[in-house]
Amino acid sequence: MTPADPSGTGGPQAGPVPGLYPWPFDGDLRPDNTALLVIGMQRDYLCAGGWLDCAGHDIAPLAALSAPLGSTLSALRRAGLAVLHLREGHRPDLNDLPETKRWRSARMGAEIGHPGPLGRHLVRGAPGTDLVLPALPGEDIIEVTGRSGFYGTDLDALLRLRGLRNLVLAGALTDGMVQATLREANDRGYECLVLEDLCASTSPAQHAEQIRMFALAGGLWGSVGRSADLLAALEDPR
């Protein structure tokens, strides 16, 4: 955590970040009130033999995320942002797997809990849930069973405890965990920025549709921007 600066404002003011609107809405962008959520950067999504690959999806757009997201992650760490990692996975006894979700995954040809090349699909502790961009000490990992990172987790408690009000979302899938987490974060009062160049879905068209949807009413759930603009804003305190 970034210590508060002597002026008592909690770090230099940065921003704003261009996008659907100058983000954040009130201009209060500081390293100590802003978190990066790295979403779904796990082998089950990105790697050959992982869950999505076994289900017949094109993982190339997801695999292409790891290098640019990795370098932005490093830069945002240096800028002092809090980092949290969200990943999808179930308890090994599958007590948290709804029948509907199991049925749909079986229909996709890669039933959750069944063995695959990277261990049991989407089961905590299996190699498939390993993060492609590992968490550093002090960076919490949130185990997600649903679409949204807030459902049935301590994410909201962790963010509130640290006074993290601005959320930067990046990762996979744009039309899965990213959009579901964005919607719930917004309902809880967080000010969100989706990094469109650092999110992806299994098809570029689905990603583009989501990004277009986020633009509804000029940013109904937050802003959409680009990683280079965020980094520039943070490196150039006003």
Binding site: R91, P92, D93, N95, D96, L97, P98, E99, T145, G146, Y151, G152, T153, D154, D156, A157
Partner: peptide
């Protein structure tokens, strides 16, 4: 192994956990 363990940071076991999800399921 078949009995879920809920790791909770608060006093109430519903706060910041998947307990409600497990029961409803």
């Amino acid at each position: 192994p078949t009995e879920p363990v809920i790791d909770k940071p608060g006093k109430g076991a519903f706060h910041a956990t998947d307990l409600d999800h497990l029961l409803r399921r």
